[in-house]
Design a protein around this nucleic acid. Structure first.
Lengths: 195, 195
DNA sequence: GTCTATAGTGCGATAGAC
DNA sequence: GTCTATCGCACTATAGAC
């Protein structure tokens, strides 16, 4: 008889998503999640800093994929080409098989402002890391921050479309949205004439 | 003898900022803020949904200024020109006299992830409102969302510069950053060549 | 593991403003 | 009288300290 089953973290994550989906985030207590997998509330908080964090595993890896895209992009590119490389790398993080899981998770997040806050903070951390990677490759400010933030904007818009449209891959959607960004922001320099 | 002084909300806000600055957000309890202005903890929570919200008054007005910029922009403009109008309107929200208050508030927010989360959510709400205003003026998706998000990116970058640089007005900084955005995102369509 | 402070909610009572 | 701000109390859950 084992004293504890392995993979406590993963089991807690799975149980949390399940409960959040079926009875709502606020209606679910940490103790309840722990009990569902045969652990105590105390153990839950040993693995996760708070009730939200349990939905945001794999975040460091996600950030790293973005950064690696910038790092391994060919030399001589514009800031936006570096960001495009980061987006292409990020797209590999979302193969079609992942769509239904992502959809479920996003449905929970969209229903609770507390979770939206956490997600925005995580994405902001990714943008910061991409900005730092761009500066490492010699991009000056404010171009580095603008390019990084624009990249995350493209990611967010593309992600919503990818979740909604069964037919297209994340990479395809990213490519399209990136193209739209260029069209949309063209001529920004002249958009606000001197008063 | 009056039972209560007027302006409970405002007094709570001022006391909260003061305490957050001097002893930190986490070290300050809601009861303490309330006591500082002669009220009870229960009354604090009647005015603010939580301890963070006390730092985010004037948010609806701020959002409205952005939206009004889009609404009152001249007809026939590109999406980015509408957003530029929104940014120009938003800049009036930050006259130079406001800088030292804004700096203090931002210093508190920057020190606490919980407050950063809330700020990101508020700014996301502004972006959503701007996006909706753009759609109302006939801008299609995803251009509306991309333009709105890009506008908020410009705002965020400009705000940081405005806080740091005593010499320039918010409008001036916004104009410059908006110009940089155009330069940075130029050629986005070709940045991610087909695989 | 246990113990505790704090956040935040629900409800009823009270005291003024009008 | 109504309306609203405040208070007081009991309560749960989160989260951190020990």
């Amino acid at each position: 008889m084992v004293r504890w089953e392995p993979g406590a973290r993963e089991r807690l994550q799975a149980a949390a998503l399940e409960l959040y989906v079926h009875q709502g985030y606020e209606q679910t207590t940490a103790a309840e999640i722990a009990r569902a997998v045969g652990l105590t509330e105390r153990t839950f908080f040993r693995h996760f800093a708070d009730k939200r964090e349990v939905l945001f595993h794999g975040q460091e890896e996600f950030r790293q994929v973005f950064v690696s895209g910038v790092v391994s992009a060919p030399a001589g590119g514009t800031p936006l080409e570096l960001v495009a490389a980061a987006l292409a790398a990020a797209a590999t993080f979302f193969p079609d098989e992942r769509r239904s899981y992502s959809r479920l998770r996003q449905q929970v997040i969209d229903a609770h402002p507390a979770l939206q806050e956490r997600e925005l903070l995580k994405l902001a951390a990714v943008a910061d890391a991409v900005g730092a990677a761009l500066r490492d490759r010699g991009v000056a400010e404010p171009a580095a921050t603008l390019a990084a933030e624009s990249g995350l904007t493209v990611f967010r818009v593309a992600f919503v479309e990818w979740l909604a449209d069964e037919g297209r891959s994340m990479l395809t959607v990213v490519r399209e949205v990136l193209g739209e960004l260029g069209t949309t922001t063209a001529g920004a320099a002249g958009a606000l004439p001197p008063g």
